[in-house]
C-alpha cells in the first residue's frame, strides 16, 4: 500500500516527468523561468492546483456523470487557479506581477487535466493525491532547474545572491526568450542521456 503510493509519486517526479519526458506544460516552463525564484513560485502554484484538483476530482468521481466530466473538471481546475491567483495577489504582489498572465494560464496546463482524466477520475483519493503531488513536484523541480541555470548564467546570481565571480560577464541572452528554448533543449538532452545510461547500466548488470 505504502509502496504503491511511493510508486505513484515517483512516476510523476521522474518516470513521466511532464517537462523532461513528456514535454507537456511547456509554456509556463519557458516563460517564467528567468530566475530560480520565479520558477519555484510557478512550480508551487501549479503543484497546489494539481493536488487540490486531483483530490477533489477523485472525491466526486462517482457523482459526476461520464458525459459531463470534462466540463466539471475544467470548472474545478479554474476555481483553484483563481484562488491561487487571488492568494498571490494578496500575499505576494511582487511574484504575482512577474508571473502575470501565466497564473490564470495554469488552467490550460495540460498536465492538470491529463492527470484528472487519466488517473484521479478512476482512483481512490489517497492514490490520486500522491500521483498529483508527484507530478507537481516533478514539474516544480524542472522549473527550478531551468530557472537556476538561466539565472546563474544570465545574471550571475542564484535566488538573488551573487554566485559567479565578480569578473563574470552575464550571458544576457539566457534571460531573454531564445535562452529559454536553448537551455531547455540542452537540459532535455542531458536528462535523456542520463536515463539512457541508467537504462543501459541496469540492463547489463
Amino acid at each position: 500500500m505504502v509502496f504503491n503510493l511511493v510508486k505513484d509519486f515517483w512516476n510523476g517526479v521522474w518516470d513521466e516527468n511532464t517537462i523532461f519526458k513528456l514535454q507537456i506544460g511547456m509554456c509556463p516552463t519557458l516563460a517564467v523561468t528567468t530566475s530560480a525564484q520565479n520558477g519555484l513560485a510557478m512550480g508551487l502554484a501549479t503543484t497546489f492546483v494539481l493536488v487540490c484538483a486531483s483530490t477533489l476530482v477523485s472525491i466526486v468521481r462517482k457523482l459526476v456523470p461520464k458525459e459531463v466530466r470534462i466540463p466539471v473538471y475544467i470548472v474545478i481546475i479554474a476555481t483553484f487557479v483563481t484562488i491561487v491567483d487571488l492568494f498571490l495577489k494578496a500575499g505576494f504582489p511582487d511574484i504575482h506581477a512577474v508571473l502575470g498572465i501565466f497564473i490564470p494560464l495554469i488552467v490550460v496546463n495540460c498536465v492538470i487535466l491529463a492527470r484528472a482524466e487519466a488517473f484521479a477520475g478512476k482512483m481512490p483519493v489517497h492514490r490520486a493525491a500522491s500521483d498529483a503531488f508527484g507530478f507537481g513536484i516533478g514539474f516544480m523541480v524542472a522549473l527550478l532547474v531551468l530557472g537556476s541555470i538561466r539565472e546563474i548564467l544570465g545574471m550571475g546570481t542564484w535566488f538573488g545572491m551573487q554566485v559567479m565571480p565578480a569578473n563574470f560577464v552575464p550571458w544576457s541572452i539566457m534571460v531573454l526568450p531564445p535562452g529559454a528554448f536553448i537551455s531547455l533543449g540542452f537540459v532535455v538532452g542531458a536528462v535523456n542521456l542520463i536515463s539512457r545510461r541508467s537504462a543501459a547500466g541496469s540492463r547489463s548488470s
Binding site: P177, F181, N192, R196
Partner: peptide, 17 residues
Amino acid sequence: ESLQGAGIALITAGLIS
C-alpha cells in the same frame, strides 16, 4: 541521439527566436 526529438526542436526554436 540524446538530443533527437524535443531537444533539437527546442534548440532550433531558440535560434529562430
